[in-house]
């Protein structure tokens, strides 16, 4: 489903403070996988996730999403891919502050042109699965960290993307909420067949993933 071939990524390229963030990454993620990218802080987990999600550019190599090379697309095409193929769960939730929970969850579906009724039904279904149906009318600022993270997950899965990229989704959650979130993600992976790729150094997340990709200093050590 996702294939990275000899991917290199530099920060501050050709400058004194140049950082080789990703080194010759070769990685294949199969459809329906539940994987975690792990490694010490600054090893390149988020960068790898961002390059797969075509948020960040690469300096060398190729990235394929369902056999389509996506790294060299125009920014308009990349936006289209982010909208239609990928669901993001950010560490800082990144919800839209002026929209309530219901509108936030249904936002991507709206952009994709689903009917109002379909969106409403899907939002209710996901909200019930993630136990946030009582918060549907609330604005993100009035929710706890755990609730916001669940809304972010709900937004990412509502439109049934092919893959969900979650950057340290449990980093701001307590153990109880982390457990709940992981259980939900497992359920979504099973029920919806969505490919899930985390970045995390949370032991609980690592233990619960079916595959662990270990990164160190921008290189894959173990996959």
């Amino acid at each position: 489903m996702i294939e990275l071939k000899s991917v290199d990524k530099y920060f501050y390229k050709s400058q004194e403070r140049e950082v080789h963030a990703l080194r010759d990454i070769n990685l294949t993620i199969q459809e329906g996988e539940f994987s975690v990218i792990t490694g010490p802080s600054g090893c390149g987990k988020t960068t790898l996730l961002n390059t797969i999600g075509v948020l960040d550019t690469i300096d060398n190599g190729e990235i394929y999403l369902q056999n389509r090379e996506i790294a060299n697309l125009s920014s308009k095409e990349k936006t289209e891919i982010r909208l239609k193929e990928i669901g993001f769960v950010f560490q800082a939730y990144n919800l839209i502050p002026v929209l309530n929970v219901e509108e936030n969850i249904g936002f991507i579906m709206r952009l994709q042109g689903y009917s109002q009724d379909t969106i409403k039904a899907r939002v209710r279904e996901i909200a019930s699965l993630l136990q946030i149906e009582k918060q549907l009318g609330a604005l993100p600022n009035f929710l706890s960290g755990g609730q916001q993270q669940r809304v972010a997950v709900a937004r990412a899965v509502a439109s049934k993307p092919k893959i969900i990229l979650a950057d340290e989704p449990t980093a701001n959650l307590d153990s109880k909420n982390s457990t709940a979130l992981m259980e939900m993600m497992h359920e979504l992976n099973k029920k919806e067949g969505i490919t899930i790729l985390f970045s995390s150094h949370d032991d609980y997340v690592i233990k619960n993933a079916r595959r662990t990709i270990l990164l160190n200093d921008g290189e894959i050590i173990e996959s």
Binding site: T79, R82, N94, F107
Partner: peptide
């Protein structure tokens, strides 16, 4: 920040 978030989840510059 909000526009950056919107762009990252597929909301295009056109919108």
């Amino acid at each position: 920040r909000e526009f950056g978030i919107l762009l990252s989840i597929g909301y295009s510059y056109r919108y």
